[in-house]
Nucleic acid binder design. Structure first.
Length: 270
DNA sequence: ACAATTTGACCGTG
DNA sequence: CACGGTCAAATTGT
């Protein structure tokens, strides 16, 4: 966490960053104006909130840069891999769930036998755990012992078709404004479903905007204990307008006519 | 109707 | 036995 003191040689880069951020702010403002035109109140509100947060983040970064000091991390694409530093164990949960849930008829027994050879690939800290260029399907969620937030389990969406073994675990790490998520990749993808890969991140530049479902599960806000399936929309997310791309052509979003399925596209860490 | 997600039960490991 | 990971019925979304 200790950012190196800005040297005079970094000033030009900083200026460039400041310019980008300013431009980002302008674009965010334009986007806000567009978003205000969304007819559905729920979506409009959520979108406006999102844009507002973007603006705030940009402004914040701007002021930090302009004041000459940098602090905090918050990259979207950075990786840190203190392999295994995450979970210890023990502590004593206590709250398991009152129970009081219906008992579903279960006839499955056991069919899973194997076990053992799952090689963890890497751990990534990110604000946008949904944003890599793969299609994931959630298959589980689990409260982890010493962690405030549950861990979400995903497997490759093509695990059936191509027997792709890739999996990832996602777990929120903080409640910070832009919450950070620890993403653990488990197996290498064997499906050939990744395209668009720009090898050079030299332009590092801006991250990717993308609102393709941000809400990883309910308990994000921690407040909602067990709401079934309520349209909320007050929470920052839920939407599924997904504009990705870099800021190259930012002002062309498609109207939210409520269609288009899902997809995960774009950004990528590493 | 099909697809994706949710969620308690089930299972292996320590 | 407690935990973490996975399965699959049920639920919700498209």
């Amino acid at each position: 966490m200790l950012p190196p003191p800005p040297s005079s040689s970094t000033s030009s880069r900083r200026d460039a960053a400041i310019q980008d951020l300013r431009r980002g702010s302008q674009l965010a403002e334009l986007l806000r104006q567009q978003v205000e035109l969304i007819p559905e109140p729920n979506r409009r509100e959520a979108a406006v909130t999102n844009v507002g947060e973007i603006s705030m983040a940009l402004e914040s970064s701007l002021s930090i840069l302009q004041s000459g000091m940098v602090s905090e991390v918050g990259e979207v694409g950075m990786a840190a891999a203190p392999a295994g530093a995450a979970y210890s164990s023990d502590g004593g949960t206590g709250v398991k769930n009152g129970g009081a849930i219906v008992s579903r008829t279960r006839r499955v027994r056991h069919r899973r036998g194997r076990h053992g050879a799952e090689l963890p690939i890497k751990e990534i800290l990110t604000e946008a755990p949904e944003n890599d260029c793969f299609h994931w399907r959630k298959y589980g969620e689990k409260k982890i012992l010493n962690d405030e937030h549950p861990r979400l389990y995903y497997k490759c969406g093509y695990s059936d078709d191509h027997k792709c073994p890739a999996k990832k675990y996602v777990q929120q790490q903080s409640n910070n404004d832009p919450p950070l998520f620890m993403v653990t990749l488990i197996n290498e993808h064997t499906c050939d479903t990744l395209f668009q890969d720009e090898p050079n991140s030299s332009s590092s530049a801006s991250q990717v905007l993308d609102f393709t479902k941000a809400p990883l599960s309910r308990p994000l806000i921690a407040a909602t204990p067990r709401l079934k399936k309520e349209e909320d929309s007050t929470s920052v997310s839920m939407q599924r307008y997904s504009y990705d791309e870099h800021l190259s052509s930012p002002l062309t979003m498609m109207p939210p006519d409520g269609d288009q399925g899902d997809f995960s596209t774009e950004p990528r860490w590493q």
